[in-house]
Design a protein around this nucleic acid. Structure first.
Length: 863
RNA sequence: GCGAAAGUGGCGGAACUGGCAGACGCGCCGGACUUAGGAUCCGGUAGCCGCAAGGCUAUGGGGGUUCAAGUCCCCCCUUUCGCACCA
């Protein structure tokens, strides 16, 4: 009897895999490819089991695909730039590069001790110049195509991280990383024009059939397409409160509003401007009290974002003293500034229809502005009195019948929208437009630990990209980290001051760095050709491996990373470098691992370190437990007891194989046809083949990893029962230590067992590779599991020749019949009716109908 | 408020296109082997009634479709997640 010592097996096989480059791959057009990817890791220091769950899921998929004959690319790397390393530098004085590389080394060891089958030769780290050089290269290509541009704008500012945040990085008004309430600043920033692809990104979500619906919904909402009309409200001159008949003051600007409900425009009794509206300054100047006006605006701007996140912020506004003309009614309507109107959406101005928009309604009531009903609900079966402005307590926002709207009165809302948009276009006072919530992506960060933006500012030539042959712009070594909020790179004059590449005059470098989400938007392409030093990657390599076939990671990246990557994919496509539209074919969002009811974190002190568990039970028990406890998408609650259960199961498998491997040596699997098998032998064969069938399907299209494990557990239970019946001394454990098992010698028994045990070990191997390798070797196989093929099943063998058919009477189970698989329907019906238990429930009643569901059940309907 | 997903034993979860609800594991109970066992093996374990055979009730609640519903349809409740003044 051999002792099961998982830790020593871990070491033995990890060493073997390393020495033989077992998981390294090259492009091989003769084999089908499979690109299996887990989201790369932020090198925070130590991986906990919540992190590594994802890698285990990917590893099961990768290993299984390899055995099924695929050429599998399964790489790993490090999302190594970012704030935490820099913040640590500010606090502890350790240079970010040093701490990052040390963290990478530690975490890599953790993953290797779990036996994750990565192609480590392809490892990348985004903080290395050989990687970020290509961020810079791509940025310049985008600049050349108008996809990267610079503008001054109000941006989200995290006062704690001291940097700009993209819209996507503001979560409920707080910083996505530290939670601090986000403020705003007005800065010159670099933007990537993701909005150019807004429509395409939206349309393509329908074709992402391998993605969770939840993620697609989030992305669609984020892109936020809405169709409407832009309508012009001419602004009257200061002091004017009625349109001068047929006359427009030439110098007065027009107020453009965006509306999705042009059908309500006859009810637009005032117009609201955002505090950020482009003409606020001018209107303030022209007002009777410019100072008071500006103070109001300032107050609203300060409220913006900060007060808003706490929920309902009080709707406030003030009258500008000016009027604009409603182009449909021809009447002058007052122009107000309101704190709830967003400067960054639509035109920054809205027509207010208090009768049919709740916000406008509240605003109108507060300031006693007129409410005009122009939509009447269609009464269902009557009696409901029509809406009357003075009786309303809230806005009526649903569609309805248009009233008091001139020639459009009587139309249904949806028809009115079309008719009124046509009219607006014909009269030149409006145009149909599409608005998106998606904004261009601001990528400038006033921080050190990131990719320098490869731009140079020259007094003569303006903004000039760094020439390709001078890339990478290497991040200079900075020794002092203050966290002051100005770009640390600005402190390095010898780096900042350069000569202009165009005119040779004195110039300065851009001192901001890129958002780290740039790094992660294309890293999956770099793995395909990770050491290329002349291009980001060779298109041929990417076009062999990509798109990624299976991608797994946390839902927290449902918007940010996944939408940016889809954007970058299209940029590379339009550069002619990749031949696909979508980077990730199948996406799995894995659930978190909770401990004591909450997500693991250092601050809560509830982290489970995989190394501790590996030390106690070995890598395989941990892997098996995490895969078994719940479907990969679910959250799981960490349980030491569950882990012990998995360890027990592996020991059970070990004892089984250990008992039989000697006797099985040199046996052959049963020949097709199986001839003279006993009933028990046939039953075991059926279990073997049926388990292979179930496991194979649950693994591949379905990715139900927990049921794969339970199927294997059932098989082991069957094997124990079989084994017990075929040994002279009974269960393996009853045997005295060190004594050889006296086993059955019947040839057929051994063949059937061999087939079963080998299939078991093979199917277990993606989950518990170390144990499986050892068992495979004990079964007499050379060359390891990397050379072994996934077991195949014979559907005929997997089916039993006899089936058990439940028989119901009036839908209640009353009996079971064991019948031949190929029994004809009539015969089955007769057998069911003749069954004693059935007759008890049918006697004295008339059989109304007998339903025979082929191969499934019989239902006798009686009255 | 809008959108999405989900509610199944003490617990995690099975049940692929409507067809035996509760697979598998954890926990618990009992037995075997043992000086001992927290090792191992075997058995039991949704609830209620019954000595038993068996019967009845059960998949958040209420209706419906169907021979048959955890699964499909309608209404309600709860939970989780996402978006949140987007005009």
């Amino acid at each position: 009897m051999r002792e099961y010592n998982p830790q020593s097996l871990d070491r033995k096989w990890q060493k073997r895999w390393m020495e033989t480059d077992a998981f390294e791959v090259t492009e091989d057009p003769s084999k089908p490819k499979f690109y299996c990817l887990e989201m790369f890791a932020y090198p925070s220091g130590h991986a906990h089991v919540g992190h590594v769950r994802n890698y285990m899921i990917g590893d099961v998929m990768a290993r299984q695909k390899r055995m099924r004959g695929f050429n599998v690319l399964h790489p790993f790397g490090w999302d190594a730039f970012g704030l935490p390393a820099e913040n640590a530098a500010i606090k502890q004085g350790v240079h970010p590069e040093k701490s990052t590389l040390a963290n990478i080394a530690h975490m890599k060891g953790q993953l290797q001790r779990l036996g994750i089958s990565y192609a480590w030769n392809r490892e990348i780290a985004t903080c290395l110049p050989e990687y970020y050089k290509w961020n810079q290269w791509l940025f310049i290509r985008m600049f050349e195509r108008g996809l990267a541009y610079r503008k001054r704008s109000t941006v989200n500012w995290c006062p704690s991280c001291q940097t700009v945040l993209a819209n996507e990085q503001v979560v409920e008004g707080g910083c996505w990383r530290c939670g601090t309430v986000v403020g705003s600043r007005n800065l010159e920033q670099w933007f990537l024009r993701i909005t150019r692809y807004a429509q395409e990104l939206l349309d393509a979500t329908d074709r992402l059939t391998g993605w969770p619906e939840k993620v697609l919904t989030m992305q669609r909402n984020w892109i936020g397409r809405s169709e409407g009309t832009r309508v012009t409200f001419p602004l009257l001159a200061p002091g004017a409160s009625a349109p001068p008949a047929g006359l427009r003051p030439d110098d007065a600007p027009d107020i453009e509003v965006f509306t999705t409900r042009i059908d309500t425009i006859y009810g637009a009794t005032f117009v609201l401007l955002a505090p950020e509206h482009e003409w606020i300054e001018r209107i303030a100047d022209e007002s009777v009290a410019p100072e008071a006006f500006r103070q109001h605006v300032q107050r609203f701007r300060a409220q913006d974002r900060t007060a808003r996140l706490t929920g309902q912020i009080e709707k406030e506004g003030f009258f500008t003293g000016r009027y604009a003309v409603n182009p449909f009614t021809g009447r002058a309507v007052p122009l107000w500034v309101a704190n709830f109107v967003l400067g960054e959406y639509g035109t920054g101005a809205v027509m207010a229809v208090p009768a049919h928009d709740q916000r406008d309604f509240e605003f109108a009531r507060k300031y006693s502005l007129p409410v005009d009903v122009v939509i009447q609900p269609e009464g269902e079966g009557g009696g409901r009195p029509p809406l009357a402005a003075e009786m309303m307590t809230e806005a009526y926002e649903d569609p309805g019948r248009v009233v008091n709207s001139g020639e459009f009165s009587g139309l249904w809302s949806t028809d009115a929208i079309a008719a009124m948009a046509d009219t607006a276009e014909a009269r030149g006072v409006g145009a149909r437009t599409v608005q998106y919530r998606l904004k261009d992506w601001g990528i400038s960060r006033q921080r050190y630990w990131g990719t320098p933006i490869p731009m140079i500012y020259c007094g003569h030539c303006g903004v000039v990209p760094v020439p390709d042959d001078q890339l990478p712009v290497v991040l200079p070594t900075v020794s002092e980290f203050t966290g002051r909020g100005d770009s640390p790179l600005a402190q390095v004059p010898e780096w900042v001051n350069v000569t202009c590449p165009t005119c040779g005059g004195a110039a300065r470098r851009e001192t901001d760095t890129m958002d780290t989400f740039v790094d992660s938007s294309w890293y999956f392409y770099r793995y395909c050709d990770p050491r290329n030093d002349s291009r980001p990657f060779a298109p041929s390599a990417v076009n062999y491996w990509c798109p990624v076939d299976f991608y797994s990671g946390g839902v927290e990246h449902a918007i940010l990373h996944l939408i940016y990557s889809r954007f970058f994919c299209r940029v590379f496509r339009d550069l002619g470098m990749v031949g696909h539209d979508e980077p990730f074919t199948r996406l799995l969002t894995q659930g978190m691992v909770l401990k004591d009811g909450s997500a693991m974190s250092k601050s809560k002190g509830n982290v489970v370190d995989p190394d501790d568990m590996v030390g106690r039970y070995g890598a395989d028990a941990l892997r098996l437990y995490v895969m078994f406890v719940a479907p990969p998408e679910n959250e799981i609650e960490w349980s030491d007891a569950g882990l012990e259960g998995s360890a027990r199961f592996l020991a059970r498998v070990w004892r089984l194989v250990d008992q039989w491997c000697g006797a099985l040596e040199g046996r052959n699997a049963p020949a097709p046809g199986g001839l003279s098998l006993t009933e028990a032998e046939q039953a075991l064969r059926r279990v073997t083949h049926d388990t292979i069938r179930r496991v194979t399907h649950d693994l591949d299209p379905r990715v139900h990893l927990n049921t794969v494990v339970s199927a294997l557990m059932e098989m082991v239970n069957e094997l124990y029962a079989f084994s017990e019946a075929h040994t002279h001394t009974g269960a393996p454990s009853r045997r005295p230590m060190g004594e050889a098992a006296p086993v059955e010698e019947r040839l057929e028994t051994l063949s059937v067992l061999k087939e079963a045990v080998e299939a078991l070990v093979l199917m277990l191997s993606p989950f518990t590779p170390h144990t499986a390798e050892e068992l495979w070797e004990m079964l007499g196989h050379q060359g390891g599991l990397t050379a072994a093929a996934w077991p195949s099943y014979d559907p005929v063998v997997a089916r039993s020749s006899e089936i058990v058919v439940p028989v119901q009477v009036n839908g209640k189970l009353r009996s079971r019949l064991t019948v031949p698989l190929d029994i004809v329907e009539d015969e089955l019906r007769e057998l069911a009716l003749a069954d004693a238990a059935v007759r008890v429930h049918t006697s004295g009643r008339t059989v109304h109908k007998v339903i025979v569901a082929k191969g499934k059940l019989v239902n006798v309907v009686v009255k």
